[in-house]
């Protein structure tokens, strides 16, 4: 109980500190709210280093959308959500990451074959093998009561 009270006080102090910071403190150079879209640019915005010098305001090289960026962007997203948000709205992320949906990602955007949508094709068969090899990857998206409803039909 004492731990919880202390945590509550620390949380409230942190909230106040953050509010004070938002109204007063200055910080490092800010990024723009939105990045120009592909239509506004003459080069692909997928390769940040085409326009931006490495190691200036941002470590631009880590955000370059290589061929496997769609399948491997966890470090960037956990640390740089604000950078992702300059180009992508949450609905874009939800195409793959929303688990409170009925249509699996590869069905909702079936024709967009250039996107590395998970569970494409006969994943019902393959998941029997993949889930034994590495169940931790299933848990990231399907690990709470709401998100596991797609599993519940067979797994209870």
């Amino acid at each position: 109980m004492a731990n919880k009270s202390l945590l509550s006080i620390l949380t409230l102090l942190a909230v106040l500190l953050l509010v004070a910071a938002c109204t007063g403190l200055q910080s490092r150079s800010a990024l723009p709210a939105r990045h120009p879209s592909a239509a506004e640019l003459t080069v692909s915005p997928k390769v940040c280093t085409n326009c931006h010098e490495r190691g200036t305001e941002l470590a631009y090289e880590r955000y370059v959308h290589t061929a496997d960026f769609g399948k491997n962007h966890r470090p960037e997203a956990t640390q740089g959500e604000a950078v992702c948000a300059m180009c992508h709205q949450t609905s874009f992320c939800n195409d793959c990451h929303a688990t409170r949906v009925e249509l699996k990602p590869s069905l909702k955007n079936q024709a967009e074959t250039y996107r590395s949508a998970p569970h494409r094709g006969d994943y019902l068969s393959r998941h029997r093998i993949d889930a034994k090899v590495d169940p931790t990857s299933c848990f990231r998206c399907h690990g709470n009561p709401k998100a596991t409803q797609t599993c519940a039909r067979c797994h209870g």
Binding site: T11, A14, V15, L17, L18, V19, A21, C22, L25, Q26, S27, R28, A82, R100, N144, P145, K146, A147
Partner: peptide, 20 residues
């Protein structure tokens, strides 16, 4: 709530009810 705390630190806090 999120924001930079000066040049070297950033803080984010959240609270509410989990949708899941």
């Amino acid at each position: 709530l999120s924001g930079d705390l000066g040049d070297y630190f950033a803080l984010s806090l959240y609270g509410g009810q989990p949708v899941g």
